[in-house]
């Protein structure tokens, strides 16, 4: 079970080579195939996640949640997806049309690209990049530009305020996010995500780096624009922020990308702090799915419990609390590493 997906990939490669294809072309086809599978997983997974979020919020709010379509309302999201697909695509007359139309595409592309480096099991990253973590963080901040494009392109004040908020939020929270991961990198001694997982063979980094995890979790919530940090959307204040003017499938792409990001960030947390695919009995790819879902559950729990924080509080929290804490964490980690090396571990 452990190597089932790798075996399939190897079998396909050797089969194609056996058909007389050059090994280079076979590898390329396999990579494209892997991408296709990932995109498929993302789309299907989002449907599951939306259903899960509705059920979780229903549970928190003493409601039943979706319960009419299919068993436990499982087909509700499928019905919603069909509805979104068939909705009219409205582009405001005075919108900046090119930017308005391309923003959701870029947003989803950036989100999907995050998955390239995630090890979805032992040796199961699509690209085993040396600077995987670095790649992940830089792509993560790209999504803000897409939000800014959406806000600017809509030519709507609510959207623009939402977009500006998202930029301010990104600038503030990207720093503690990167700093919090630095402690992990220092201990693992690598930016490669698979190496970081291997480094946790004996001890998960959540135990060595608890402060970093908390900082990462808070900053990631802000990066994901999820409650209580959902400033760019801020339904009750900015109607829907940057998404105000979007309808139908364009809006659905944003929605899809948000959940895609949620999975990616949770999977990264599982990789960096909870030992990735490590765990007894079950195969590694199942372990990482379980861990990712558990972390996502916490994200949902937070969203459905807390009110939205105020914008200036949000920024000052980042600059006055998170950044100093994450800096101190790096300092302590460095000192600890030196100490252990000196003691000869």
């Amino acid at each position: 079970m452990e190597t089932i997906f790798i075996d399939i990939a190897e079998f396909l490669t050797s089969w194609m080579v056996g058909l007389g294809l050059a090994p280079l072309w076979a590898d390329l086809i396999i990579t494209i195939l892997q991408w296709a599978v990932i995109v498929l997983i993302i789309t299907v997974n989002t449907i599951v996640l939306v259903w899960m979020e509705r059920k979780v919020s229903g549970f928190i709010q003493e409601r039943i949640g979706p319960n009419r379509l299919g068993p436990f309302g499982a087909f509700q999201t499928i019905a919603d997806t069909l509805k979104l697909l068939t909705k009219e695509d409205i582009v405001p007359a005075r919108a900046d049309k090119l930017i308005f139309k391309t923003a959701p595409m870029f947003f989803i592309i950036v989100s999907v690209m995050l998955y390239a480096v995630l090890p979805l099991g032992n040796n199961m990253a699509v690209v085993n990049l040396n600077v995987g973590l670095f790649y992940f963080i830089s792509l993560g901040s790209l999504s803000t530009i897409c939000l800014l494009m959406a806000g600017w392109g809509s030519n709507n004040k609510w959207s623009l305020v939402g977009a500006m908020r998202s930029v301010a939020q990104m600038i503030s929270y990207e720093i503690p996010l990167a700093f919090s991961l630095l402690g992990v990198v220092m201990i693992a001694g690598s930016l490669n995500l698979s190496d970081i997982v291997t480094a946790q063979n004996r001890l998960w980094f959540i135990i060595l780096q608890p402060v970093a995890f908390i900082v990462y979790f808070i900053a990631a919530t802000a990066e994901l624009n999820r409650g209580p940090f959902d400033m760019p959307e801020a339904e009750q204040e900015l109607t829907a922020g940057a998404y105000t003017e979007y309808t139908g499938m364009r809006w659905a792409l944003f929605f899809l990308a948000e959940y895609t990001n949620l999975v990616a960030v949770s999977a990264l947390a599982a990789t960096l702090f909870f030992g990735g695919g490590q765990g007894p009995l079950l195969p590694s790819w199942l372990w990482i799915i379980i861990k990712t879902y558990l972390i996502m559950l916490v994200f949902m729990w937070m969203k459905w419990t807390f009110p939205r924080i105020r914008m200036d509080h949000l920024l000052s929290f980042s600059w006055k609390v998170l950044i100093p804490v994450s800096l101190a964490n790096i300092l302590v980690t460095g000192a600890g590493l030196e100490l252990f090396r000196w003691m000869g571990w």
């Binding site: 919020s57 928190i60 709010q61 003493e62 339904e235 807390f306 009110p307 939205r308």
Partner: peptide, 16 residues
């Protein structure tokens, strides 16, 4: 107040 501040759950409890 709860829902205007973004806490959807608070609303449901009061309405309940």
């Amino acid at each position: 107040l709860a829902i205007d501040l973004g806490a959807t759950t608070g609303m449901i409890y009061c309405y309940r």
